[in-house]
Amino acid sequence: KEFRPGDKVVLPPYGVGVVAGIAQRSVSGVSRAYYQVDFPGSRSKAYVPVEAPHSVGLRKAL
């Protein structure tokens, strides 16, 4: 896996977040693995496909 729990990442347009782990989510009846990204200071979460994280701009924070 490219990202691990605890990694600081950037996800446009949300900003800097932390990978909380990998979650299985069902979309249109198909279960897939997603990185769960939490954003400190907020209750917001984002789910990014493990198979294509760069397709939505997910990258490691510098």
Score class of each variant (00 low, 15 high):
residue 2 E to H: 11
residue 2 E to L: 11
residue 2 E to Y: 10
residue 3 F to K: 01
residue 4 R to H: 12
residue 5 P to W: 04
residue 5 P to C: 12
residue 6 G to H: 02
residue 6 G to P: 02
residue 7 D to T: 08
residue 7 D to Q: 06
residue 7 D to N: 03
residue 7 D to P: 00
residue 8 K to M: 13
residue 8 K to N: 07
residue 9 V to G: 00
residue 9 V to P: 11
residue 9 V to Q: 00
residue 9 V to H: 01
residue 9 V to A: 00
residue 9 V to F: 03
residue 10 V to Y: 14
residue 11 L to F: 07
residue 11 L to D: 01
residue 11 L to C: 08
residue 12 P to F: 09
residue 13 P to L: 08
residue 13 P to K: 09
residue 14 Y to V: 02
residue 14 Y to N: 02
residue 14 Y to L: 07
residue 14 Y to T: 01
residue 15 G to E: 01
residue 16 V to S: 07
residue 16 V to A: 10
residue 16 V to R: 09
residue 16 V to P: 07
residue 17 G to R: 00
residue 17 G to F: 01
residue 17 G to C: 04
residue 17 G to K: 00
residue 18 V to T: 08
residue 18 V to H: 05
residue 18 V to I: 12
residue 19 V to E: 01
residue 20 A to C: 12
residue 20 A to P: 00
residue 20 A to L: 10
residue 21 G to R: 12
residue 21 G to Q: 08
residue 21 G to C: 13
residue 21 G to F: 04
residue 23 A to K: 13
residue 23 A to Q: 12
residue 23 A to Y: 12
residue 25 R to Q: 07
residue 26 S to G: 05
residue 27 V to M: 08
residue 27 V to I: 12
residue 27 V to Y: 06
residue 28 S to L: 10
residue 28 S to Y: 05
residue 28 S to N: 14
residue 28 S to C: 14
residue 29 G to E: 03
residue 30 V to M: 07
residue 30 V to A: 06
residue 31 S to M: 14
residue 32 R to W: 04
residue 33 A to E: 15
residue 33 A to C: 14
residue 34 Y to T: 00
residue 34 Y to F: 11
residue 35 Y to G: 02
residue 36 Q to I: 15
residue 36 Q to G: 01
residue 36 Q to V: 15
residue 36 Q to D: 06
residue 37 V to M: 01
residue 37 V to D: 02
residue 38 D to L: 12
residue 38 D to S: 11
residue 38 D to P: 00
residue 39 F to D: 01
residue 39 F to A: 00
residue 40 P to M: 09
residue 40 P to N: 07
residue 41 G to I: 09
residue 42 S to E: 08
residue 42 S to M: 11
residue 42 S to T: 13
residue 42 S to W: 10
residue 42 S to Y: 09
residue 43 R to F: 12
residue 43 R to V: 13
residue 43 R to K: 12
residue 43 R to Q: 13
residue 44 S to G: 13
residue 45 K to Y: 10
residue 45 K to H: 12
residue 46 A to D: 02
residue 46 A to F: 08
residue 47 Y to F: 12
residue 47 Y to V: 02
residue 47 Y to E: 04
residue 48 V to P: 00
residue 48 V to L: 04
residue 48 V to N: 00
residue 49 P to Y: 04
residue 50 V to Y: 05
residue 50 V to N: 00
residue 51 E to Y: 06
residue 51 E to P: 03
residue 51 E to V: 07
residue 52 A to W: 09
residue 52 A to I: 06
residue 53 P to D: 06
residue 53 P to Y: 07
residue 55 S to M: 11
residue 57 G to H: 05
residue 57 G to M: 04
residue 58 L to N: 03
residue 58 L to Y: 00
residue 59 R to T: 12
residue 60 K to N: 11
residue 60 K to L: 13
residue 61 A to G: 05
residue 61 A to V: 13
residue 62 L to C: 15
residue 62 L to V: 15
residue 62 L to G: 15
